[in-house]
């Protein structure tokens, strides 16, 4: 089975976001990790390989440090990696990213494509579905359970207040939700082997795309940091008194009641 997992290297969940002098997000000194949702996708991909045989290829787009993320995935058990590393990526939007990704994926044989359902930095949650559209294959998002039988897949996905089960034929794109699996902790042997696994680096031009093909359809106007949380208010008194005062505040000051 040819399995492709698309991952993104994101800021650490603990990272503090600061804006630089140009009002842009300052990436200096920030710790980068694999998007946690993508970890579930990698794990699922490796499990499918263990069950059905075949190959897991990791595809990512990113700056010079993106390779680290791929090596980590290889250490978990993936077989090959492809990194699209190009300065043009600093200015692309979700549509352009999806186009580039689609071109990269199209060069590889694939039966199933996996990724996380959302990236924790920008929270756009668009790439995978756009990728599926660009490749003209079905996509199922927020998957909690995946059962593969031959070319048929039964996917259980999370919806508001419950789950729904969808049957779809491969090839298709599936995005992973938390709870799909428990990502494995790699062995040192895996880490050592990962250093020798093939990792291809490509520029956008290698995909047959020129800058002109990727004019963004969406532009960012401004970044602002969220307003600082105000200190809480402590309401004194015993329970009936305090409740009365709270009700008054919610009505008069917060204006939510």
């Amino acid at each position: 089975m040819n399995i492709i997992v698309c991952i993104k290297q994101t800021f650490d969940t603990e990272a503090k976001i600061v804006l630089d002098g140009n009002g842009k997000i300052d990436p200096n000194g920030v710790n980068l990790i694999i998007n946690p949702y993508d970890e579930y996708a990698i794990e699922e991909g490796i499990r499918l390989k263990e069950k059905f045989g075949g190959d897991v290829t990791i595809v990512t787009m990113g700056g010079p440090r993106a390779q680290e993320a791929v090596r980590t995935a290889l250490a978990m058990g993936a077989d090959k990696g492809v990194v699209v590393n190009d300065p043009i990526l600093e200015g692309t939007d979700e549509w352009a990213n999806a186009e580039i990704l689609a071109k990269a994926v199209a060069q590889l044989p694939y039966d199933i494509i996996l990724s996380g359902r959302i990236a924790i930095d920008d929270g756009a949650s668009q790439i995978s579905v756009r990728l599926a559209e660009a490749l003209n294959i079905p996509s199922v998002t927020s998957v909690l359970k995946l059962e593969v039988a031959g070319t048929q897949v039964t996917a259980t996905r999370e919806i508001d207040g419950g789950t729904e089960t969808i049957e779809v034929a491969l090839p298709a794109v599936f995005t992973a939700q938390k709870g799909l699996n428990e990502p494995r902790y790699p062995s040192v042997a895996g880490i050592m082997k990962a250093k020798k696994k093939p990792l291809k680096s490509m520029a956008v031009a290698d995909l047959g795309l020129a800058a002109g093909d990727l004019a963004s359809k969406m532009s960012v106007q401004k970044y602002t940091l969220p307003t600082a949380r105000q200190a809480g208010q402590k309401i004194p008194g015993d329970a009936p008194q305090a409740a009365k005062e709270l009700a008054r505040l919610l009505h008069e000051e917060a204006k939510v009641l």
Binding site: E14, K16, V30, N31
Partner: peptide, 11 residues
Amino acid sequence: LRPIAGSIHAN
């Protein structure tokens, strides 16, 4: 331990 390392990086 990830949040710990993350916090050290960031803060």
